[in-house]
Design a protein around this nucleic acid. Structure first.
Length: 712
DNA sequence: AGAACGACA
């Protein structure tokens, strides 16, 4: 791999003079970035190669600068755009804002971003930042990505499912776009006819897409340039995948981080972490500490232990505060990690892997890395997910230690001996190898990949996982036995941005006259934990939850929460201004121990999906007080997830035969009905089913005869 | 009698 450029020095007078206008400061900053010195070379390489792999460590400026270089080099001629994908929403938004400022334009004009629920682009947008999942959705309407001249896939080393699927899809698009377009156009016109014959006619989207292609009849679409950007040192995988694509390296600008190991094997990494926190506090120079733990429970227990220990320190040494952060924590508590401490007070942040990539905390000088991470795995045979604590990979350990060197030289204390590091896996197993593939397969089929086994994955998922998900899609009626999407059900399902089983539930609910209730249900099921139970107010939180709970189960309970919030909002809307309404809803959430971020998210999902079902002309009726009707609809929708009570009081998952328990968060935890449907099957300390509603088992052979007929 | 890594559409 060729290394471009030299380590640019940080200009000493950067930011010092207040007289320098912001514009000039930005220009100077841009010039000081390592990537700036290689602009010309980079553009040359893009002209010469259809695919480039660019390895650039943190601080190289690749994400903000390279799209601007391409724009200036004329890659947006003829109204074409440069698309830049990110694995996370926040990244897409913040980078787009930064770049539009650098360009001196308003975000949404020349530079914009598009993420779910938020499209800040216009017809003049030429540099578009977006999440990779959103580009995949966009591809359903424009399978050749015809409006883009260049796609940049950023953070490809993270190997999220969406990035992996996108890479495979882009490889296919790139090939097609170099082919004569006549063939492709005919394909798409056939597709349009098929849509028109079935029920899948939507408001002109397919038509628009075909007509936008018509202008290319007999001509070629310009080739699609691809740039894969990765922060991992090893570009070989990407390069080989794209047929030996040229790989370039851009220098980063990270401060040095000294790594320390333990001398001996550590038997209790929590205890070791606790000791290290206080060693740093008592012996090292000022600077905040970031410790990586595996989950909420560990964080809470270390938080309490550390607080006790602080109390026992001499008063002059009590200048230290402990702050937890993990995803399920309400936003206002998450924000505490950014609040500056009083002078002379050290911050200790206890974080899950949220602080590895998603949240960047300034001022960290010391990292404590016990070397473990909790990760999701998937057992395709049982259809069960597990949350298991694993050792980190080498790449992950490097990512963690890097968090100490963002503002100055730092130190990282790994809680294991050095020889252990060399025994770690090089990189984390990509997500696509350890997740349920139903959504991936449905999406690929909608993009025209009928034979999943022939799809060119960057790394193949396990065959068994493909079979299991295909089986599920066939049982849901989304995929016909010839392997193609069924019409109209499969096509409808693929258009709805939800888990396939939820999309199907909406279609079923249309027939049961309870789509209004199901729409609320799937919106609430699609977000993380609606209820928030702080340890210190557990009883109070439970009492509040009881006000919403339904005897039937969690689904109706979630509907009750949603409707109570709506009712509260409608009342407040009459008396208050818009901002005050939002504020009072937050207060209402707090009083009722509801996570307002999750509820907000559920309401966004609800309004987006409502638009989809309206476009599809599904009948948006309510079943009113007829809860039996709704529960029957739940049974008809989630018949694949049924568990029955056994004589000893445990439950058996009908599909896998596994013995499971009702999760303690369920309103049915102590109720123990004979037969239930559920939406999640996860192993943590036990094998749990979550989000549960009781049903009459006699319904099953009536409502899902193709699956249950034999059992009677 | 007892509990949830992180992200995305």
């Amino acid at each position: 791999m060729e290394t471009l450029g030299v380590n640019a020095k940080v200009s000493a007078n950067d930011c010092k003079s207040e007289n320098i206008s912001r514009k000039r400061k930005i220009a100077e900053h841009r010039k000081s970035l390592p990537v700036a010195s290689v602009e010309h070379l980079l553009i040359q390489e893009v002209h010469r190669n259809d695919t480039l792999v660019i390895v650039g460590e943190t601080g190289s400026g690749k994400t903000t600068q390279i799209p601007q270089f391409l724009f200036n080099a004329g890659f947006c001629r003829d109204g074409k755009a440069i698309g830049v994908t990110q694995p996370r929403r926040v990244a897409a938004v913040t980078v787009a804002k930064r770049v539009s400022e650098e360009c001196g334009v308003e975000v949404g004009q020349k530079v914009g971003y598009s993420i779910r629920f938020e499209d800040v682009t216009s017809s003049s947008t030429r540099i578009k930042y977006m999440t990779d999942g959103l580009l995949l959705r966009e591809a359903l309407l424009d399978p050749f990505l015809s409006r883009y001249s260049v796609i940049i896939v950023d953070e490809a080393h993270e190997r999220t499912v969406n990035t992996d699927v996108l890479l495979g899809f882009l490889k296919k698009v790139q090939k097609t776009r170099s082919r004569s377009l006549n063939d492709s156009l005919n394909d798409s016109l056939n597709a349009e006819n098929m849509h028109a014959n079935g029920l899948v006619v939507e408001n002109g989207n397919n038509g628009k897409y075909a007509s936008s292609l018509r202008q290319y009849r007999g001509r070629k679409l310009p080739p699609l340039k691809l740039i894969i950007m990765s922060a991992s040192l090893d570009a070989r995988l990407f390069s080989e995948y794209f047929g030996g694509a040229r790989a370039l390296r851009v220098q980063g600008r990270q401060h040095p981080v000294a790594i320390f190991y333990t001398r001996k094997h550590v038997s209790d990494y929590l205890e070791a972490t606790l000791i290290t926190i206080f060693q740093i506090h008592l012996e090292e120079s000022p600077g905040d500490i970031l410790a990586f733990l595996t989950g909420q429970e560990e964080i809470e227990s270390i938080e309490n232990l550390a607080k006790d220990k602080i109390q026992k320190l001499p008063e002059s040494k009590q200048n230290i505060v402990v702050i937890p952060i993990y995803s399920a924590l309400p936003s206002e508590q998450q924000l505490r990690v950014f609040a500056p401490t009083p002078p002379g007070v050290r911050k200790v942040i206890l974080a899950t892997n949220i602080a590895e990539t998603s949240v960047t905390i300034p001022g960290i000088k010391y990292v404590i890395d016990p070397g473990f991470v909790k990760a999701r795995t998937y057992d395709p045979n049982k259809g069960m997910e597990s949350l298991i604590v694993f050792p980190t990979s080498k790449a992950q350990a490097l990512q963690r230690s890097g968090r100490a060197g963002r503002e100055g030289p730092g130190k990282c204390f790994r809680q294991y001996p050095e020889d252990m590091f060399y025994k770690l896996e090089d990189s984390t197993k990509p997500e696509i190898k350890r997740c349920n593939l139903s959504n991936v397969i449905l999406q690929l089929k909608a993009l025209g990949v009928d034979n999943i086994m022939e799809f060119d994955f960057l790394e193949e998922p396990p065959r068994q996982a493909i079979f299991k998900s295909l089986e599920q899609l066939i049982l849901l009626g989304a995929v016909a036995h010839d392997g193609k999407l069924s019409n109209p059900v499969g096509h409808l399902m693929a258009r709805i941005p939800l888990d396939p089983i939820y999309s199907k539930a909406l279609i079923v609910a249309g027939q049961f006259n309870c789509l209004e209730e199901m729409l609320i249900t799937v919106s609430m099921l699609s977000v993380e934990s609606i209820f928030y139970h702080p340890r210190e107010k557990l009883e109070e939180a439970r009492a509040k939850m009881k006000c919403f709970s339904s005897l039937e189960g969690d689904h109706l309970t979630l509907i009750n929460v949603y409707r109570s919030a709506e009712e509260f909002l409608n009342k407040k809307k009459l008396e208050l201004s818009k901002e005050k309404v939002e504020k009072s809803l937050k207060k209402w959430c707090k009083e009722n121990f509801i996570n307002s971020r999750s509820l907000r998210h559920a309401r966004d999902v609800h309004s987006q999906i409502r638009e989809h079902v309206e476009q599809m002309n599904l009948p948006l009726h309510s079943c009113g007080d007829d809860t039996i009707q709704f529960c029957r609809c739940l049974a008809a929708s989630f018949f694949l997830n049924v568990a029955t009570k056994q004589p000893d009081g445990t439950y058996r998952d009908c599909a896998s035969g596994e013995v499971v328990q009702i999760h303690p968060s369920s309103v049915l935890f102590r109720k123990k009905p004979d037969c239930v449907i559920f939406n999640e099957f996860v192993q943590t300390n036990h094998k749990y089913i979550r989000n549960i509603t009781r049903i009459d088992r006699l319904w099953l052979s009536e409502l899902a005869p193709h699956y249950y007929a034999l059992q009677n």
